[in-house]
Nucleic acid binder design. Structure first.
Length: 560
RNA sequence: UGGGGCGUCGCCAAGCGGUAAGGCAGCGGACUUUGACUCCGCCAUUCGUUGGUUCGAGUCCAACCGUCCCAGCCA
């Protein structure tokens, strides 16, 4: 991403003010995923906002793993996250971990205790919840709230030394049990948890909570702007309380933006995780998932993803972005970058009756007409060909421009072909079309000036490359931001999220395609060679408005 | 019923007291050996509602309505 491409948003205005007021000499942001799952398109938005903001102001950007809950986190995820970030083309200034700061957090906790701002609490989890009160009723103070500094210091030290069982004690910030903000009702900042941490091993049996580590780490890394989603807005007072009370010079600023939502998509990692566990999705890279690995496998590019999140906008209002915008971004890029190829997904045979069995006519076909000096390739045309089953109709609707009986149609880049007869099987299905070519139309318009309306694509039977083409669609049918019940996923699953075309016939040039290569299958859409299997080709997006009549299911998002 | 956030075209979104940007989608039309692409044109007398302040309000004030988030020893 280049600086010129970064459009301004409300966060930049905040930063402009901070700079004008001398608050921020240089800008430093961070992307802080918890390593408990794989990155998804929602993270792309957070990455985009933090990274592009740093870039815009010539600042720094860190990747930070929020690994303060060893029960859920692990190396599998930290590795995957780094790989995905690298795929996005982003190199952080620094890669760090919440666990890098466990020693400092421990010391800062003692600072709070000494100041009388934290206490060791013996209440059980249930009791803490009870004492917390409700949204409308104030909480009441813990009976352990007024322990002496000395007792708290002693108890906290012994918590650290492993003298107490898991969950038996916590360290809590002493703030205000009557606060209307639940986060300020003496929040727990340390818990006893004997879990093996993926980085610190068994060194600790007490772990600080997010609300305590995050501000400390932001401050110690000299983060100037801690940009996160609006769910954390309620935590901002606590974030600031910690920074103001631990005696640290640097004061980072937390600001929030709205999360990304997309129609027919559930972005949160808990959804993907559940779909995989229930066997509905094949894994973190199932192309129907919104994870980065899935999107990559399906053929989406980092540039299109970044362009999409930027166009989707950075604001605070809850919004639901149309999936079509993502498709638009991908099409826009692929239109100028993807070589055109002919591929017949659902073949029906055509026999050219006025050609010899061994005759081969090679045509020069342009690879991409949108580039300045287009290159071309040779494509063989033979007596036996395949065309798309739906490109022929013996009962054509009005405005049908494709092949029909006794009519001529252009075989793209090749001859004008006339269909003389259709052969059927016992069930009435077309098995073969008998046609003739007009040899005067080889790669050009008919010399007699007659107009040929339709153009269809074709593949030589003799030279065809066999492949399996997979048409992926959005996994969900629901079009809202609502939470869905994960026990009943099936109620929301699009049954047509995967369609496999087993007998696809590709033009010979496709034999040289490599994994992740992207193409436009002319008149069909954009496709990508699957990362795992060169013989499998995945659809990225369809072309826009493919057919105005005769093809009602032409939209890729067929679940609306 | 407490607190906080947010409400501008079908979907996003600018706007920061001076008379509603832009993108997506859609609709016309031109072009076309991809019904693609490209190109032209159209698409909010109105900013959740109602009052108020002002010469002037989407922008300020008040009330109301709607919506999202918060009661993990998760992040």
């Amino acid at each position: 991403m280049s600086e010129e491409n970064i459009s301004s948003n409300f966060i930049h205005k905040i930063i402009d003010e901070d700079i004008a007021n001398g608050l921020s000499a240089r800008i430093h942001t961070r992307f802080p995923p918890e390593p408990n799952g794989y990155l998804h398109i929602g993270h792309t938005k957070a990455i985009w906002i933090n990274y592009s903001t740093a870039k815009k102001y010539g600042g720094l950007f860190n990747l930070r793993f929020d690994d303060t809950n060893p029960a859920k986190e692990g190396d599998e995820y930290v590795n995957a996250i780094q790989e995905d970030l690298a795929w996005l083309g982003i190199t952080p200034y620094k890669i760090c971990f919440g666990s890098d700061y466990f020693d400092e957090c421990y010391e800062f906790a003692k600072v709070l205790i000494r100041k009388g701002l934290a206490f060791v609490c013996d209440l059980t989890g249930d009791e803490i919840n009870e004492y917390r009160g409700t949204l409308t009723t104030p909480g009441k103070e813990s009976p352990y709230r007024n322990r002496s500094v000395e007792e708290n210091m002693d108890l906290f030290e012994r918590m650290k030394n492993g003298e107490f069982p898991d969950g038996s004690k916590t360290l809590r910030a002493k703030i205000d049990m009557k606060s209307p903000n639940m986060n300020m009702r003496d929040p727990v900042i340390y818990r006893i948890l004997r879990a093996h941490h993926h980085r610190t091993g068994d060194k600790w049996c007490i772990y600080p909570l997010y609300d305590f580590v995050h501000p400390i780490q932001d401050a110690m890394e000299e983060i100037t702007h801690s940009l996160c989603d609006v769910d954390f807005e309620n935590h901002r007072p606590l974030y600031e309380w910690v920074i103001n009370n631990i005696d640290i010079k640097h004061t980072p600023k937390q600001r929030e933006f709205a999360k990304l939502n997309i129609t027919y998509t559930k972005i949160g990692k808990r959804y993907s995780k559940a779909l995989i566990e229930q066997g509905i999705a094949d894994g973190w890279d199932d192309p129907r998932l919104p994870t980065l690995r899935a999107l990559r496998r399906r053929g989406y590019t980092p540039s299109a993803l970044f362009n999409f999140v930027q166009l989707a906008g950075v604001a605070k209002a809850t919004s639901l972005c149309d999936y079509g915008l993502l498709e638009h971004c991908m099409r826009e890029e692929l239109n100028t970058t993807a070589p055109r190829r002919m591929a017949v997904l659902d073949p029906i045979e055509v026999e050219i009756t006025n050609m010899d069995e061994d005759e081969v006519v090679y045509f020069d076909v342009v690879n991409n007409p949108t580039v300045e000096n287009p290159t071309s390739r040779k494509v063989p045309f033979t007596k036996h060909l395949y065309i798309e089953r739906e490109d022929f109709s013996d009962n054509p609707p009005p405005k049908y421009q494709r092949m029909k009986l006794d009519h001529e149609v252009r075989f793209m880049s090749a001859f004008v072909v006339k269909c003389n007869e259709a052969l059927y099987d016992e069930n009435g299905n077309v098995t073969k079309l008998l046609c003739t070519i007009d040899r005067e139309t080889a790669g050009c318009n008919p010399p007699d000036g007659r107009k040929i309306k339709g153009t269809i694509h074709w593949v030589s039977k003799k030279f065809a490359v066999d492949a399996e083409v997979r048409l992926y669609d959005n996994l969900f049918t629901c079009e809202d931001t609502g939470v869905i019940n994960m026990d009943n996923f099936k109620d929301y699953i699009n049954p047509d999220s995967l369609k496999i075309m087993k007998n696809a016939k590709l033009e010979p040039a496709m034999a040289e395609a490599n994994c992740e290569d992207k193409f436009q299958f002319v008149r069909t859409g954009y496709f990508c060679v699957d990362i795992h299997d060169k013989n499998v080709i995945n659809r990225i997006v369809t072309l826009k408005d493919s057919f105005k009549s005769g093809k009602p299911d032409s939209k890729s998002t067929g679940n609306s």
